[in-house]
Write a protein that binds this DNA or RNA. Structure first.
Length: 311
DNA sequence: TGGATTTGACCGAG
DNA sequence: CTCGGTCAAATCCA
């Protein structure tokens, strides 16, 4: 049993170390001449490492004593796991999910416009949930062999929240129309005060909000820094639809006040019809967001003591 | 009339 | 065997 713990620890450390290396490599890719494909590949690797790390932690906390990777049938990108001879049977596409909070009208006929055209192909009652799950696939599936799909399900806890799970990447032209803005351009945009870091109070929490004016979008990726944290957002599909928005906020909860971080995104289109996107990097999900946390251990606010998971 | 949605049937992983 | 995901015929709608 003790050996198993050691193995978990080692695997976790290895995964996190790999992730850090990929982040460092990615930093070097911010050369304007670097290819987007290279960046994309590195992002995939980072997400994979984070997923595996999270799955290990998740297994330790919530499950019994199974193989930590056994829960990976629900997480994204199992390529490297398949290389280890596991989970060969099932073809699994990259998968991530987000929660979308809506208010105002149109609750039942919720149709979240994420910039792509979707065609509903099924609906299913899911065991243990109060609301059916709807299945969508890309409209261009037949014409352009685009295999992207998404699932939408109303949350049981909050009827205003929809859980949207995306699978696969868009290969259709719609996805390629996204404008790629280089890091230099984004920096220039920020310099023109298109990015504003605000400290606001939301409820009882102090929240740092990055306000980016509409012209700064779509972006891939965006990097911004605050005093005690830095991150960049990568608008890998499907979230690239600031079309109807007047402003977008990325909020970063101060790590010293939170046991775990989360990243909120609020899209404001108008006072009466507001859509709130809540990104929650969970153990089984693969957020299209990539957080460029400075993993250096000399920043105590970013250190997480994982030892408790192994006791 | 053609594209989108609905819904029961079917398939396959676990 | 169960249940989530997909298929495809029927139906809807602009």
């Amino acid at each position: 049993m003790e050996k198993v713990k050691d193995w978990d620890k080692k695997t976790l450390i290895t995964e996190l170390t790999q992730g850090k290396e990929f982040v460092n490599k990615l930093k070097n890719q911010f050369d304007p001449l670097a290819s987007p494909e290279k960046c994309d590949l590195l992002l995939e690797k980072i997400l994979s490492s984070l997923d595996k790390s999270l799955s290990i932690l998740n297994w330790k906390v919530f499950n019994g004593t199974k193989d930590p990777f056994s829960c990976c049938s629900t997480i994204s990108d199992l390529g490297s796991l398949r290389d280890q001879g596991q989970n060969k049977k099932r073809k699994i596409l990259q998968k991530w999910s987000k929660q979308v909070r809506i208010s105002g009208t149109g609750l039942e006929s919720f149709n979240h416009d994420d910039g792509y055209s979707w065609r509903k192909y099924g609906q299913k009652d899911i065991l243990g949930t109060n609301h059916p799950r709807a299945y969508y696939r890309c409209t261009h599936r037949n014409t352009q062999s685009c295999l992207a799909t998404k699932q939408v399900q109303k949350s049981d806890e909050d009827p205003l929240v929809f859980e949207v799970t995306y699978k696969g990447r868009h290969s259709c032209k719609a996805s390629q129309s996204s404008i790629f803005i280089s890091y230099e351009d984004q920096k220039a945009n920020c310099n023109k005060n298109q990015c504003q870091l605000k400290k606001q109070k939301v409820g009882n929490q102090k929240v740092e909000k990055l306000n980016i004016k509409e012209k700064a979008f779509p972006f891939t990726p965006l990097k911004c820094e605050s005093q005690n944290a830095q991150f960049f957002a990568n608008s890998i599909e499907p979230f690239t639809s600031p079309i109807e928005s007047e402003s977008m906020y990325l909020s970063l909860l101060p790590t010293q006040e939170e046991e775990e971080f989360e990243m909120d995104m609020i899209l404001q289109s108008s006072e009466s019809d507001r859509t709130e996107f809540i990104w929650t990097p969970t153990s089984v999900n693969n957020s299209p967001f990539c957080a460029d946390w400075d993993l250096s251990v000399d920043d105590p606010s970013l250190m997480v003591d994982i030892s408790e998971y192994f006791t």
